[in-house]
Simulated assay, not measured.
Amino acid sequence: MTQIKNIGVYTSGGDSPGMNAAIRAVVRTALYYNLEVTGIRRGYEGMINGDMLPMDRRSVANIIQRGGTILKTARSLEFREPEGRKQAYEQLKKHGVDALVAIGGDGTFTGAKVFGHEYDIPVLGLPGTIDNDLIGTDFTIGYDTAINTVMEAVDKIRDTAESHDRLFIVEVMGRDSGLIALRTGIASGAEAILIPESKTNIDALYERLDTGRRDKSSKILIVAEGDEAGGAFEIGKLVKEKYPNYDTRVSVLGHMQRGGHPTCMDRVLASRVGVAAVEGLLAGHSNEMVGIINNQITYTPFENAIKHTVEADPNLLKIVEILSL
Rank of each mutant, 00 (worst) to 15 (best):
M1C: 05
T2K: 12
K5C: 01
N6L: 00
G8M: 03
G8V: 04
G8C: 04
V9P: 05
Y10G: 00
S12G: 03
S12V: 01
G13H: 13
G13D: 13
P17L: 11
G18H: 01
A30V: 02
Y32G: 00
Y33M: 00
T38V: 14
T38C: 14
R41D: 01
I48K: 05
I48V: 10
N49Q: 15
G50C: 06
M52D: 12
P54G: 02
R58N: 13
S59M: 04
N62Y: 09
N62T: 02
N62F: 10
Q65K: 12
G68Q: 07
I70H: 11
I70S: 12
K72L: 15
K72M: 15
T73R: 07
A74R: 13
L77T: 12
E78K: 14
A88T: 04
Y89N: 14
K93M: 12
K94I: 00
K94L: 13
H95F: 15
G96A: 08
L100P: 03
V101Q: 08
G104N: 02
G105H: 06
G111L: 05
A112S: 14
V114F: 03
F115M: 02
G116T: 09
E118N: 06
D120T: 13
P127L: 06
T129R: 05
D131Y: 03
L134H: 10
T137D: 07
T137E: 07
D138V: 14
D138G: 11
I141W: 05
G142W: 00
N148H: 15
E152Q: 15
E152S: 11
D155T: 09
L167H: 10
I169R: 06
I169A: 06
E171A: 06
G174S: 07
L179E: 11
I180D: 06
A181E: 08
L182D: 02
T184S: 15
G185T: 06
G189W: 10
E191D: 15
L194C: 10
D203P: 00
R208A: 11
R208M: 10
T211P: 00
R214A: 13
K216L: 13
L221Y: 03
A224L: 09
E225Y: 03
E225L: 02
D227V: 01
D227T: 11
A232V: 02
G236F: 00
K237R: 15
K237S: 11
L238K: 15
P244Y: 07
Y246M: 12
Y246D: 04
D247N: 14
R249T: 07
V250C: 13
L253M: 04
H255V: 06
H261A: 14
H261I: 12
H261V: 13
H261C: 12
R267Y: 07
R267V: 09
S271N: 12
R272P: 00
L281P: 02
H285Y: 13
N287H: 12
N287F: 00
E288C: 14
N294E: 15
N295L: 04
N295S: 14
T298A: 08
F302P: 00
F302Q: 00
A305C: 04
A305M: 01
T309K: 14
V310N: 12
E311C: 08
A312S: 13
P314M: 05
K318N: 13
I319C: 08
V320W: 00
V320T: 02
V320Y: 01
S324Q: 09
